[in-house]
Design a protein around this nucleic acid. Structure first.
Lengths: 199, 199, 199, 199
DNA sequence: TCATAAACGAGACGGTACGTCCGGTCTTCTT
DNA sequence: AAGAAGACCGGACGTACCGTCTCGTTTATGA
């Protein structure tokens, strides 16, 4: 998410940034990503044309193509992350993971993330954005585990971060590789395994 | 400064394939991957120049740039993956994960893997090859778990693939994000958690 | 270093047209044209910034970039063109051409004209305006020749426009190509040749 | 109606520069220049597409778009410059100027030269090419005048270069401005005037 | 023995995408 | 209402890189 330019020292005169253009760009990007048609590659030019804006407007708001893709993805999966509190770790985990998995199963996100990871590797800014994207979700899962620890469902000395990484590791790994599914059933099974491992 | 391979040293082999050229290509690729310098991108032209060979020679041996990268990686990490058999799941896991973590933390490998993952992100073919690379290791871990199941250490109905993905998920996630370490201690703790979760 | 016009000094005049702004624009244009530095291209944005005004103010007063350039030139070379009348064609020509050559050789004018000609070359509108600028001078020369014709110094049937174009052709050609000088001596010699050719 | 060059017919030449590609580029440029259609601007992309080659191939042979235009023009007007020798200066001049004028009257050269002059102003290389283009012709005219001087048709002390510039000045001035024609009649009249002025 | 065939270094080529630049218009806030 | 500031659309520019193709050279093989 691009840091909105802090309103400068001088009260901003001049034409203000056009939020509609910004949204048009994101919408167009999402549309192209969702189509994923062979003849319609997700090019910067294609995005500009689809959005009916000039290329420069894209580069005025985002530093690179990858940044746009990331934000399009983020806004795609912006559905709030629930931090359920059923009083039982396994149930909480199952609900949480189910949510995450569902958002990540949208048909074409894999391609997006592929491009993103590439950008992240060469553009530190994108990398930071990508990490920021996951940080929120990781924080939510961590909270969930801490609550369980207070309830005594987690053995003292257990490395909570490792548990978090097990969950997100599975998620990202399967998401990116497409080798195995991210179904609700898997979410439940993963919840079970993690809850067991936490004891 | 690139360790330029002494130029013109490599002899022609006439109409027979020149193994030296092949090795020069792999060595040059590894060098570029390890450097990962901004002004020295890992392009096919760069590899060819660094190796002192023609681009066509690359495409005579490999179908695409990604294939070269993968093979450079594979030859780097050829150290066989042990499939220990101590008779106790947790010990087996700890040994296996320790190996994997160590290989991925060796400074040279790390740079190569990171660049390769970036490459994979933008080239689906590389991604496929990279997955093929991990398949072997995944197979080893899976074997290890199956043996434990036969010994009764794993609850029937447990999703072994999910356990495998938890292990490799943590590995890749931490490796690529750099958010958390991959120390031997983490390997042991992960082994403990997985063994617990398998019950 | 650009002689930045003290910024913010010029007062707003509210709803009345601000002659000061107009002059600032012309001055800034002249400055940029005269500099002709590689890093300071004569773009509309550059002019606006250098003048400390908004781009729209330029387009409120002139229909296009070229029009601004032309007016900057015109105001530069406003020195009236003399139409001498010595009663002898050759003398008249020598005086007239001497003036023209001198104006075009003044260092400042030279830079401006050269840049402008370049601009004219890529912008048909500028070319048109530039021609309008020369039309006045051409008219003066033509008048001079007509007077000579009435005096009988020009053979009947002589193409006066062709003579005019010979004079201005030499002027522009040498001015733009820089291949040969535009000295007073050349003006005299050209006057002699033209007077001869007119007979 | 783009006369598409039979696609894919042109053979590769391997590591040597492909003269066919070069010619295809020039031909395509000439075609686009000649069309001068509003919807088909003479863009680098358009040239590349029309020629059926990659843009990079253009930039491998020429430093900029202007250079291509110039060469297309040059090759267009490559018709040899005659240096007639009738034994009479005026006749020689008339023939020579007639040739030059005819070449310059091709409908669309004006646009080409406009673009060229723009490039020349910012790209010294193009400027040099443009001057080289005229040098040959100027040399021919100069030779012609020198022969006349030897025959005694030119007054001693006459500035031959000035006469040359009068001729080419008229040519370029009318050519670029389009203000007055370059008909055979004008060539004859100019020849008469110059021959007179030389005496 | 000598012609042929294959691999090689070199690098031009077609094609696709990228990110930048600039002209002219539009919008917002200030004076 | 005019002005300063600057975002916006459109379109061209020149660069980077992939994978293909051909050249001329070098060497092993087979007639």
């Amino acid at each position: 998410m691009p840091t909105t330019p802090e309103p400068g020292r001088r009260p901003h005169t001049g034409r203000r940034r056009n939020e509609a253009a910004r949204q048009a760009i994101l919408a167009a990007t999402r549309r192209l990503l969702a189509e994923n048609a062979p003849g319609r590659p997700v090019t910067v030019d294609a995005i500009a044309k689809e959005a009916g804006i000039g290329k420069q407007t894209i580069y005025r708001w985002w530093p690179s193509k990858g940044a746009v893709l990331l934000e399009a993805l983020t806004s795609l999966a912006r559905d709030e992350v629930r931090t359920p509190d059923t009083g039982v770790l396994e149930s909480d985990l199952a609900a949480f993971l189910g949510d995450i998995f569902r958002a990540g199963t949208a048909p074409d996100n894999a391609a997006v993330l592929r491009t993103l990871a590439a950008e992240a590797a060469r553009d530190a800014q994108v990398a930071e954005l990508l990490l920021g994207f996951t940080r929120t979700r990781r924080g939510a899962l961590r909270t969930l585990l801490e609550r369980a620890r207070e309830r005594g469902e987690v053995a003292p000395g257990t490395d909570l971060d490792l548990l978090v990484d097990q969950a997100f590791g599975v998620y990202w790994f399967r998401f990116l590789s497409g080798l195995a599914p991210l179904t609700p059933a898997v979410a439940r099974e993963l919840a079970r395994t993690l809850a067991l491992g936490a004891r």
